[in-house]
Design a protein around this nucleic acid. Structure first.
Lengths: 234, 234
DNA sequence: ACCTACATTTGACTCAAGTCAAAGACCTGC
DNA sequence: GCAGGTCTTTGACTTGAGTCAAATGTAGGT
C-alpha cells in the first residue's frame, strides 16, 4: 500500500506525542500496518478481558476508558481526546485489556497492531523510553486516583475543577476563571467514583457556599482560595 | 542507615526476576553501581515527592509502598518481599516518587541508580520489554484496586483472602485451606482501604457466617464457595 | 409543534463504615 | 513478675453517600 501525501492515517500518527520524533520512514512503515476505524457513539472499542492485539490513537471524537465494578457501576479511569494514545500499556502484560474503552461521541481511532510497536521498539530505543514514561504516568495517575477516594465527593469535585482549569487555561487561574466541563455530569460522576445524584448535590453545595457559579457545563470559579482549600482538606 | 559495597549484591541481582536473563558481564556492571542498604523497621526508604534517583530490589525483610491520603490515613498499594523490585516505574516520569516506601520489619534493599538502568536498556532491548511488562502489571493491579473500592469491606477481605490463598498454596485451594496473613491486621486494613476497627468487624462477620476460622494470623477457609460468592458480589 | 429519550435536580430513606472510647490480649525489656 | 507498649476487639454514636422515586428541563427527530 502506497502512502499518499494526504494519507489521514499518517497525519494522525504524526500528531501523536507518543510517536513524535519518529523518522518519516518509520512513520510510513507504521502507517502501513495501521487501520482507521470509525466508532459510533456508545460503541465499545474493546472490552475488559478482550485479547489485546494492539493499541489505539484517537483521531477525532471523545472516548472513555473505564472499569466495571462488581456492583455494576462503572469507574471511568480516563477520558481520551484527539492525539492521545490508549491501551498501549496492555500490550506488555497478560494478553487481555484490563479495562474497557467506549466512544462518548462518534469517534475515529487508529489501530496499531502489537507487532508494529514491538518492531519499532527493537529498532529505536527512544520509543521504549517514551512508552515507559507514558506507562509511568499512568501509574502516577492511578495512584493519585486511589488517594482521591479518601476524600468526600465535594472535595473530589473541587480537585477536578482545579485540575481542569489548570489544563484548559493555565495562565488564567484566578477568581473569575471559567472551566468548561468536557463531559456531561453523569460521566463526570463516574469519573469521580460516585453517582449523578450525589455529584449534583456536590455542585449545589459549592454553588451555595459561593465557591463556584454553574451555568450548564460552564463553571465560573468565584473563590479560588476556598476551592483550593476544599480540594486539599476533607 | 548503613551503606556498604559488598559481594552479596550480585547474588541479589541474580535472583531478581526483573533482571533474569542478563549476561554475567551486564550483571557485574550493574552490581558495581549498586548499593546495599539496611533499613530499620519503620524507616522510610523514600518518601512521596522525593527525587527519584534510582530504583530498589528487596534483598530481605518486608516493606510496604503506600500513599498518604489527604485526611492523613495511608493507603497501602503493595507489600514487597525478597527478590521483588520497586520504584522502577518512577524513573521514567516526573522526577519524584509518587508514593512512599517504608520497612515493615528491618530489611535490606539494593539501590540501583537510574543511570545504570538507562544504560542497560540502551544495550539490551529485552530489558525494556521486561520493564514495560512490569509497569503494565502495575497498571493492571492499580485499576483492579480501584474497582475493589466499590465493594463493601467484607467483600474486599474475602477477595484478599482468596488471592492470598492462591498465592501461597495454589494447589491446596479447597475447603480447609489455610492462609497465613503476611502482615498484621492494622497494615492489612490500610491495604484494603479501611481502618483496623472495621476490618476487625469484617473478620468477625466472616467468622460468624461460618465462612472462615480465625486463629491470630492463621486463617482457615471453611466454605470456599461462600467466600468466592462474597468476593465477587457486593 | 409534538413526542420520546436523556440529563439534571430534589426529597426521603437507609445503611455501611468511620470516629471516639474503652477494655482485654500479647509481647518485650527491665 | 511487673510496667509500658502495641495490637485487636467491641460498643455506641454520627454521617456521608447510595437508592428509590418523582418532577423538571433539554435536545433531537419526525
Amino acid at each position: 500500500m502506497t502512502i499518499k501525501r494526504t494519507d489521514p492515517v499518517a497525519d494522525v500518527l504524526r500528531s501523536a506525542p507518543m510517536l513524535s520524533g519518529l523518522e518519516p520512514l518509520d512513520l510510513q512503515e507504521l502507517a502501513g500496518m495501521a487501520l482507521l476505524r470509525e466508532v459510533p457513539r456508545g460503541q465499545l472499542v474493546f472490552a475488559e478481558g478482550d485479547e489485546a492485539l494492539g493499541f489505539f490513537i484517537c483521531a477525532g471524537g471523545k472516548l472513555k476508558v473505564f472499569k466495571t465494578t462488581p456492583d455494576g457501576r462503572e469507574q471511568i479511569l480516563h477520558f481520551i481526546f484527539p492525539g492521545e494514545s490508549f491501551a498501549e500499556v496492555a500490550l506488555f502484560t497478560g494478553r487481555t485489556y484490563p479495562a474497557s474503552a467506549q466512544a462518548l461521541e462518534t469517534s475515529r481511532v487508529v489501530f496499531i497492531p502489537r507487532e508494529g510497536l514491538v518492531r519499532l521498539i527493537k529498532k529505536r530505543t527512544d520509543i521504549a523510553f517514551k512508552l515507559l514514561a507514558g506507562s509511568a504516568l499512568w501509574v502516577r495517575r492511578l495512584t493519585d486516583l486511589i488517594a482521591e477516594y479518601a476524600k468526600a465527593v465535594p472535595s473530589r469535585l473541587a480537585g477536578y475543577l482545579l485540575a481542569e482549569a489548570l489544563r484548559q487555561r493555565p495562565t488564567a487561574l484566578a477568581d473569575g476563571a471559567r472551566v468548561r466541563l468536557v463531559v456531561n455530569k453523569g460521566e463526570l460522576a463516574a469519573h469521580l467514583g460516585t453517582v449523578a445524584e450525589t455529584l449534583s448535590r456536590a455542585f449545589a453545595r459549592l454553588r451555595d457556599d459561593g465557591v463556584i457559579e454553574v451555568e450548564e457545563r460552564e463553571i465560573t470559579i468565584k473563590d479560588l482560595a476556598a476551592l483550593r482549600d476544599l480540594a486539599s482538606g476533607p
